[in-house]
């Protein structure tokens, strides 16, 4: 599905070069559920952003579905992740001004999907996540778990091939967290490739493989 080879990312402060990612090799096959772990500042989120093409890297090769990401222009990259990648955030990042329905619908709008089709797709997802009754509420009217559910629904609406989650349960209590994680497992069983960043061993255990990062390097 995707392959990182010798990825470096750094920032220069004065004469010092601080490495955020250092020689990271990673290969992900379709259907995998990977958990990235590591202490704060080890580069977990940076790696996830690089995989999600939200962030660039300074050196190395990145192939995603046979496309060489490092050779693509910004526009082509964003077209690529728009089509194939869904994001889930720790702080949900729902748009406060939009209702649940509209939040979920937004990615489809950016992919120029027709209104009637959008309606059907959103209705399916609402149904599947059992949040039909909440579709006209605004994010602030929901609990954290419900907001994250909407966040995941939004990430999945455009039928991505890869789901990236940055500490998806970080702001939730344990019960809500468990629900989200079992949802992830269910999605993975249906064939979705998932990469999550997490602090929790328990959540990491839901995945099929764990990558440990330390100071920007993959720990062996």
């Amino acid at each position: 599905m995707l392959e990182l080879k010798g990825i470096y990312k750094w920032v220069n402060t004065g004469n010092n070069r601080i490495f955020l990612l250092k020689d990271v090799d990673l290969s992900v096959k379709p259907g995998e559920f990977i958990s990235i772990m590591g202490p704060s500042g080890s580069g977990k989120s940076t790696l996830l952003n690089v995989i999600g093409m939200l962030d660039t890297f300074d050196q190395g090769e990145y192939n995603f579905l046979h496309e060489s990401v490092h050779q693509l222009k910004v526009k082509q990259r964003s077209a690529l992740y728009k089509q194939y990648i869904g994001f889930v955030f720790q702080a949900y990042h729902l748009i406060d001004e939009l209702t649940v329905y509209e939040n979920i619908e937004t990615p489809l709008i950016y992919q120029n999907i027709k209104t009637s089709e959008r309606k059907a797709l959103v209705a399916d997802v609402l149904d599947r996540f059992q949040i039909v009754g909440k579709k006209d509420l605004f994010p602030t009217q929901l609990s954290g778990g419900q907001q994250q559910l909407v966040g995941i629904a939004r990430a999945l609406i455009a039928k991505p091939k890869l789901l990236l989650a940055d500490e998806p349960t970080g702001n939730l209590n344990s019960k809500q967290g468990e629900e989200i994680m079992s949802l992830f497992r269910e999605l993975n069983r249906e064939g979705m490739t998932i990469i999550q960043v997490t602090h929790s061993e328990k959540n990491a255990a839901y995945g099929s493989r764990i990558i440990n990062l330390l100071d920007g390097m993959v720990a062996q």
Partner: peptide, 13 residues
Amino acid sequence: AKEVGVRKTLGSG
């Protein structure tokens, strides 16, 4: 800013 960020990750140009 947050709204802009979210929209961008959702694929807005």
